[in-house]
Amino acid sequence: MESTWLVLLSLALGLTVGAGFVTLLYVAERHGKRAADVVNPAVPDGIDQVLDALESAGVVLDPSNNVIKSSPGALSMGLVVNQQLAHLELLDLARGVRRTGEAVSEELVLSRGPFGDASMHLRVRLARLGSRYVLLLAEDRTEAFRLDEVRRDFVANISHELKTPIAAVGLLAEALGHAADEPVQVRRFADRLTTEAERLARLTQEIIELSRLQAQDALREPELLDIDGIVAAGIDQNRVVADADRITIAVGKKSRAMVHGDERLLVMAVHNLVANAVHYSAPGSRVGVGARVSDGVIQITVTDQGVGIPEGDLDRIFERFFRVDQARSRNTGGTGLGLAIVKHVVQIHGGDIRVWSQPGHGSTFTIRLPEATHPAPAATGDTP
């Protein structure tokens, strides 16, 4: 009997110890899960997919402002580095949202990355995401701000450029009235009036042309063109001016290359480069023009022996209305739009333009265009 009670007591004690052990395991598991949730917080359902699909920047912050999820845009903008926000301004906004619970929207100018020199204009919005997280969304407005600045500068430059010939036309018209009885003076003022009117017409036409080019992303109806014919046409338009200043235009060998493009635009681009070379060359000097093909790339080169371009201005010469020598440009009738037009013409043809220059020794401009893959049309002889 006594042995039976001992067996029952041992069994009860075993069950009690086992139940306690199971309880300890359950409690330990609950604590472990809670700790894991704190260390590895889960993003609310659906947020992962939304952030992965965002083209702009999106970031989810935990209660300690650690980044637990970010979109590719946030990484490419440099907003997130090592799972942390890279800008104190964004951290301050996140703390404010967490403190007040209210969403905020701000326009910020931040560096692109923690050590970047380039700045970016961002429109950011932060809001609570559930009870624990903060969601940050950022839209890069840098390009929009740049275009606004370009537009403002363009309008200001147009106003300035138009003011000079318009004022000159008004003054010359008034002078003509006072000199009505002096035929020589009338003729002189009339000639100057014609010159200013032509300059005004040329400036207006180039502004219209540049606006069309900037609105045109690609060629609408490209044709298969002979590059040698384009170069010859661009040169012919400058023969009279070059001969008047005793400037020799030397033409290289024929390239026999073909290009897909717009003939009028390409001739205009070559013409503008040759005209610049002639205008900035001394009387009696030489301008070289040539075209060649290398590895499927057509290169049209215009070289002069003129005054050259300072190194600091090389990055700006394709800007609208930019002139290296303001006085000389105005004396030769330059509008400051020629090289900008060349750049846009070349770009919509899938090419680029490069420049080399040394002050006092001259400049070389090179248009690079993709060679047409179609064979050149066969030469046709006279019909027998």
Rank of each mutant, 00 (worst) to 15 (best):
G290N: 13
I367Y: 03
L203F: 06
R128D: 02
I158E: 11
G170Q: 13
P222H: 06
R98M: 12
T23D: 08
L6W: 07
G96A: 12
T383Q: 12
F322I: 02
T301A: 14
A118D: 15
A275Y: 00
F154N: 12
P359V: 13
G333A: 08
K343V: 00
F365D: 01
S64M: 08
G284P: 04
G113H: 01
R199W: 03
Q347Y: 03
H87V: 02
V274D: 05
L193W: 06
A215C: 06
D117M: 09
E106T: 06
L266T: 06
A327K: 12
A175I: 03
V60H: 06
L171F: 05
V97H: 05
N272H: 14
L171P: 00
A250I: 10
L6K: 12
Q216G: 00
Y133H: 14
D313M: 09
L24F: 13
M120K: 01
M258I: 06
Y280E: 02
A376Y: 08
T142D: 05
R286P: 02
A242Q: 03
V50I: 15
E143K: 07
L314I: 11
I208L: 13
I348P: 01
Q214E: 15
L162Q: 11
R112F: 00
G170D: 07
G334R: 07
D325Q: 08
E198W: 01
L110P: 00
H160M: 11
R220H: 11
S76N: 10
P359M: 07
G78R: 03
G130R: 11
M258T: 12
I353R: 03
D226P: 02
I68Y: 10
Q185L: 15
S64W: 05
A57P: 01
N238I: 01
V302A: 04
R151C: 01
D92C: 00
G46N: 08
H178M: 10
V186M: 15
T301Y: 00
P114C: 02
L137W: 04
L108R: 02
E174Q: 13
A103D: 09
G14M: 12
I227H: 02
L61F: 05
N40G: 00
I47W: 08
F322V: 01
G290T: 14
G252N: 05
V270L: 03
L213W: 10
L213C: 09
L135K: 04
E221G: 00
A376E: 05
E206S: 10
A201S: 15
A12K: 04
L135S: 02
G288L: 10
L213I: 11
R128P: 07
K33H: 14
S255D: 04
A12N: 02
S70D: 11
M77R: 07
S281A: 13
I367M: 15
G334C: 08
R199C: 03
L203N: 06
E139R: 10
L266M: 12
T364M: 14
D217H: 13
L176R: 14
T364G: 01
S255E: 04
V346E: 04
T301G: 01
L219T: 05
P222S: 09
